[in-house]
Design a protein around this nucleic acid. Structure first.
Lengths: 239, 239
DNA sequence: CGGCCGGTTGATAACGCTCAAATGCGGTGG
DNA sequence: CCACCGCATTTGAGCGTTATCAACCGGCCG
């Protein structure tokens, strides 16, 4: 008996309402625990996954590699996130899931989840909803990476991380862990490492945020949200 | 009795296997038919939709507007596509659905779809899968718009449209309808109209594709795919 | 101590944007 | 049939953002 069920209860509870019954049932969802190192992959392109994933600690990335070796990061998964629920109905991976930082994860067999969803339509609806919110987030990233200036993009990214971390109860005051390098950040925002560095210094100098040593600290949330043009609707969190 | 059911059968049949029983049932899915003009919106941000949409003719766009008035197009929907199935489990729209060209569409009430999904798990799975493939496509667009050079982006876009049109039986030989302006194209790829124009001329001069007057014509598919670095896996079409 | 990784800095150039104007073209009305 | 209008496309010139290449710094770990 692991705590995998508890993570499902918390995570799905953030985006919808679970009945006491559903919660009790979900608590018994179970699977295997694994430790993964920075740089290690969990699911790779071409594979046919048989498990979904939950994050206990650390940080995961969803990414693709171009023929030239450029990496595009599509998502970061914080502790309590449940990546790759979409593998329930997409047979073959068209992207990779890996660890950006040393992480502790849980692996839940598909049949286990199907069992719960068959019995509980409301759980099915919420898991489906989770995958749809992911899609909504991909759209927001598309918009952000396609049309915003570097410093706006970056502010937006920090707003999203902070908002999600806060919802998941992972913040320490105005700060939270974000164990990524400037290189990782560049591969998420689609900009070079050099420019990430300069943009970061600009935001720091403007008194908006600080990001050093894997720690994100918000200095002026109001101003950060404003320069980011950040509207959290797309995360579809419960009010 | 409209042909809405037939579109569902065709569209879902492209991404998965439907039993004869499921097909027969789906054929009876019904709703209202509507005509929409270029520029007209069907679903707008903030709204709580009660219907899903199917496209009979014309072309739809999913898009968002930035505070500065910049439009980001997230998807185009060809005839036989079924946009906004995600509204089944996402209450409030965080983007808009509109017509890029005069279009004939069908509106299917949510309860109608829920009725079919409750009775037929396989139909539910395929509709869910459809929303997941949308998500996969958003990821591909994110990668493309974030890291590719203008002419590669554009070639990739044309490859996607051509592949989807071919699968849906909408091509006339090496050509297909794509009733959009260079402005629309720019708002999808995240580049200025001027640069769209120049890139378009470049592709034409290189003998890869022609795009004029709302018509897309492929001159050299092999070379187009190669310069686009196009791999259709992300569309998850049935082989 | 030395090596490695991540961060910082500088100089140069490419890519794509903006502004502005001109051209082409289909439709409408005189 | 021609003049005109609106819309989409094309062209030109100058500028800005961001990439690239290269070097250097600084801390952490073996």
């Amino acid at each position: 008996m692991t705590d995998i069920g508890a993570i499902f209860v918390q995570h799905l509870g953030l985006i919808g309402r679970l009945s006491a019954d559903d919660e009790a049932a979900l608590l018994s969802v179970d699977g295997d625990i694994r430790e993964v190192q920075r740089g290690e992959d969990i699911l790779v392109e071409g594979e046919r996954p048989t498990h979904a994933v939950v994050v206990f600690s650390g940080l995961l990335q969803r990414y693709t590699m171009s023929p030239q070796g450029d990496r595009q990061i599509h998502s970061f998964y914080l502790p309590t996130d449940t990546p790759c629920l979409e593998t329930l109905h997409i047979g073959v991976m068209d992207n990779n899931l890996g660890a950006v930082a040393p992480s502790r994860i849980g692996l839940v067999p598909h049949p286990e989840l199907f069992r719960f969803m068959d019995a509980r339509p409301n759980v099915l609806a919420l898991i489906w909803r989770e995958t749809l919110i992911q899609a909504s987030t991909f759209r927001e990233w598309l918009m952000r990476n396609s049309q915003k200036l570097a410093h706006v993009q970056m502010a937006h990214f920090f707003c999203e991380i902070m908002t999600r971390a806060r919802a998941a109860g992972l913040t320490q005051g105005d700060a939270c862990d974000l164990p990524i390098t400037q290189d990782d950040l560049g591969d998420a925002l689609g900009m070079s490492t050099v420019h990430v560095n300069r943009t970061l210094m600009m935001l720091r100098a403007a008194g908006l945020v600080e990001f050093r040593g894997g720690k994100l600290r918000v200095i002026d949330w109001e101003k950060l949200v404003e320069t980011a043009e950040f509207d959290p609707t797309y995360l579809h969190l419960r009010p």
